[in-house]
Design a protein around this nucleic acid. Structure first.
Lengths: 108, 108
DNA sequence: TTAATATATTAGATTATTCGCATATAATAA
DNA sequence: TTATTATATGCGAATAATCTAATATATTAA
């Protein structure tokens, strides 16, 4: 297997390893939003939001479209959402495994 | 949406944001392997391999099983593989988009 | 042109990750 | 017990990521 795929995959996972960026992606799930809209939904300083957006745009995760003074961000490839859904299933299954384990230990 | 899911998702993506760890997961795709087997397949120092394995075990991505002196690692939840496949499709589509764009620019 | 609004960028302090190296533990064999 | 093989852990230096604060740019309106 070509090791460059691991580099690329690791790179994109690195982008995803920040909760605010994941929240942004989630907010864009059902369509584009302007920076302003995101900003009012998100409780982080505007500058910081722009930094996250910029990073995701550069790495091809988000697309942008300018309309007058506003810039609209959207998810470049909806498969990302699909991958996220599966990964969250994994997380939930991990949680329930953990809970079951915790119960077993308490009973024993 | 509960923001803890973003924390958790970011956490697991952080684990995945290292090419060597992704290579390990790939090597475990079709079944468990001992540390020794992984070590001979991977061109990294054994200590470093153990560090990566330990991290993935702690975060519930890998399971372990001891058999005598050997410890066998395996993928805890095969859905991880599924998520990886989709994410790699995204990466390949990004690449081809990029190539097409590069061509367009050269022609223009 | 100036002002106002929307968005992006830079710099620097802080914190987290990663690796190499040395060492530790665990199981088994002799 | 001692030796051997398999695996794990702790420490420290190098590097990278993240946030804040200040500032810059871009678009439109007046």
């Amino acid at each position: 297997m070509d090791k460059r795929i691991y580099e690329m995959h690791a790179g994109i996972c690195c982008i995803f390893s920040n909760p605010k960026r994941l929240e942004i992606i989630d907010l864009l799930r059902d369509g584009e939003k302007s920076v302003n809209e995101l900003s009012s939904l998100m409780e982080i300083p505007q500058a910081n939001l722009s930094q996250h957006l910029s990073l995701m745009r550069q790495s091809g995760i988000l697309d942008t479209r300018r309309e007058g003074v506003n810039i609209y961000y959207s998810i470049a490839n909806p498969k990302v959402i699909k991958a996220f859904e599966i990964m969250r299933e994994v997380l939930l299954e991990q949680l329930s495994r953990h809970e079951k384990l915790a119960k077993k230990i308490k009973i024993a």
